[in-house]
């Protein structure tokens, strides 16, 4: 109904969000389960968090994942921001259509294809598979997400600000770093976070491009899940969900404050 907050809307919102959240909430609750059986409640306990911390294979996989995610997110943010600037600022250069196509295609490319093709590339050029190859692979697909996020901010950016800075004698590079970058910073940070979580999360591409000795956390989780559901996996999943939730909430709070300050100031 016009402008109203009708019963139909409330029901569809409730059902929709219940569908989205009940599985995650159950997973978190059962990570505190005393019982080894994931589906039988045996009382509240932190013991699976202890077991998780003592599982050295799980912890070393987490360490590999954290390093891959940090490096690839940072590289992807630099490359993706450059791509976004190139695509919004320069309307004509040779191969622009191909470039813009390549910057969007990885977003919808099935992971099995991206993974297989990158692996075959690494084999063809004789690069040893392991930490480096996973990092290169993650940088490649994550930079496209960064490019999309930053581009959507850049198109609304008032270019005359940058031009004014250059008229006042700033070099283009300086104008970019002192005028443009601070304005698009929220998008760049959001892009970094997105790249980081994408890397943290990726199973398929990492499985294709990793070699002996470089097992990421999703690969470890996957191999354990195939053997059956274990409370330890619930515990590590809860930790990951917690990190992501805090990160996303903090970022949105930060953006809100910033927007408020901009409006006032």
């Amino acid at each position: 109904m016009a402008g109203s907050w009708s019963r139909f809307n409330i029901i569809s919102l409730t059902l929709g969000f219940a569908f989205l959240y009940i599985p995650i909430v159950l997973l978190v609750i059962y990570s505190f389960n005393e019982s080894r059986l994931v589906t039988v409640w045996g009382g509240f306990s932190f013991k699976w968090y202890g077991a998780m911390l003592n599982n050295s294979a799980l912890m070393s996989a987490a360490w590999v994942t954290a390093r891959v995610a940090l490096i690839s997110a940072t590289l992807a943010t630099i490359l993706g921001t450059m791509a976004a600037v190139a695509l919004t600022r320069y309307s004509q250069f040779r191969g622009r259509l191909l470039f813009s196509g390549m910057a969007v295609a990885p977003l919808v490319m099935p992971e099995v294809i991206t993974g297989l093709s990158l692996l075959l590339l690494f084999v063809a050029v004789g690069l040893d598979r392991g930490f480096t190859t996973i990092m290169l692979a993650h940088t490649t697909f994550a930079m496209c997400y960064v490019a999309v996020v930053v581009q959507s901010r850049l198109v609304t950016f008032d270019r005359s600000l940058e031009e004014a800075a250059m008229d006042l004698g700033a070099t283009p590079a300086r104008a970019f770093f002192q005028v443009t970058l601070p304005v698009i910073a929220p998008a760049v940070i959001a892009g970094w976070m997105l790249a980081f979580t994408l890397s943290l999360d990726d199973l398929v591409i990492a499985s294709f491009t990793s070699g002996p000795g470089a097992t990421t956390l999703p690969m470890k989780i996957y191999s354990q899940v195939r053997l059956g559901v274990t409370p330890e996996i619930n515990a590590i999943s809860t930790v990951l969900i917690g990190i992501v939730t805090v990160g996303v909430l903090a970022a949105s709070l930060f953006n809100k404050r910033r927007a408020l300050r901009e409006r006032q100031g």
């Binding site: 989205l20 995650i24 999360d201 990160g247």
Partner: peptide, 8 residues
Amino acid sequence: PFWTSFLI
């Protein structure tokens, strides 16, 4: 949920 691990 989109930011939360797909696998999880």
